[in-house]
Simulated scan of single mutants.
Amino acid sequence: MIELKNLTKRFDRITAVDNMNLTISDGSVVGLVGSNGSGKSTLLRLLSGVYQPDGGEVLVGGKKLFDNPAAKGECYFIPDFPYFYNNSTINSTAFLYRNLYPNWSEEQFNRFCSVFPIKRDAKIINMSKGMQRQAALILALSTCPKYLFLDEIFDGLDPVVRHLLKKILIEQVSEHNMTVIIASHNLRELEDLCDRICLMHKGRMLMERDLDSLRLCFRKVQVAFLEMPLVPNIFEGIDVVNVWQNGNVFNVTIRGTEEDFMPQLNALNPAYVSAMPLTLEEIFISEMEEAGYDVNSIL
């Protein structure tokens, strides 16, 4: 289990992670999303013991990781830009990792080397961005981590390798109860993989929820009228996130299910009304707008 208790990390005057509290059960796949500079990468470095907290604490498997090599042996962190020495190959790095990680599996190493199309004796630094990520994944998965932290891991991977990675992660979670936390802007990939989503903004956790329940909590609704209803506010009493109007047609994002708002809308005798679930990207945009993120000025 991962526990964050009033976790805080500062860099000079910038608070990258601000008094954060969170609990993540073992065997979960958690997507970490948020605006640029929201603190996602900093949080992953705190979780993996790279950074020491300035306040509060982070416990992974009940242990503090900073300056704790034994606990770090159960974790693996792949940053946005994996680092390798100039002469590093998969084979030479594996030789080092055999002595560093207590759960290293030679069987898994050979298996993943055969699954990913990477030359084991080629210099990793000369590989493309996507191939370097695949090399990092081979080494990470061969350590058989109990906790795997991934930062923008899908960036640079082609569609076939992305599909392969998701399949492998699901397999490792189901067979070995591995916990995976993925920070990514690729919300479509997270939607296929994660069972829980955490939304960060300015170092704080805006929202954390199971993905299935999150999908049920929002609807995009289009409603059209032949004649506008004679009421001061058509959507009064409905939890509206945002509204876009074009004449007698309204496109509305509503927090709730059809049972919550359809009776009220149907009572207004619309010519047409339709409700659909939001995608994860649409939920992200609506929540960021509500948090004060000026989406319109960017888009």
Rank of each mutant, 00 (worst) to 15 (best):
D121I: 01
N126A: 06
L59F: 06
F84E: 02
E74G: 02
P117T: 06
L96W: 07
Y101T: 14
F116T: 07
L65R: 10
W104A: 12
E57Q: 15
F116N: 14
A94F: 06
Y97H: 15
N99K: 15
S114C: 04
N126D: 11
I125V: 15
S88V: 01
N68Q: 08
C113Y: 01
A122W: 03
P53I: 04
F77D: 01
I90A: 03
V58R: 10
D80S: 09
F95Q: 14
P69S: 07
F84I: 00
D54K: 05
P82R: 05
K63N: 10
S105H: 11
N68A: 02
E107A: 13
G62Q: 11
G56M: 03
Y83M: 01
R98I: 07
F112A: 07
N126Q: 13
L100K: 10
R111F: 13
G55F: 03
P69A: 06
V60Q: 10
G55N: 08
L96K: 13
M127A: 11
D67E: 14
E106Y: 08
R98D: 08
F95P: 00
N87V: 04
A122E: 13
G62S: 09
L96P: 04
Y76P: 01
Q52D: 08
M127T: 12
F109V: 08
L65D: 02
F116M: 12
S114F: 00
N91T: 11
N91S: 13
V115N: 04
D80T: 09
I90S: 06
Q108K: 15
Y51M: 08
Y97V: 07
D67F: 07
E107Q: 14
L65E: 01
L96C: 13
I125K: 07
P69H: 06
Y85L: 09
P117E: 10
D67A: 12
A71R: 02
F116Q: 12
L65K: 05
I125W: 01
L59A: 11
N86L: 10
T89V: 04
G55L: 03
N126R: 12
L96R: 14
Y76F: 13
A94M: 08
T93P: 01
G73L: 00
V58L: 03
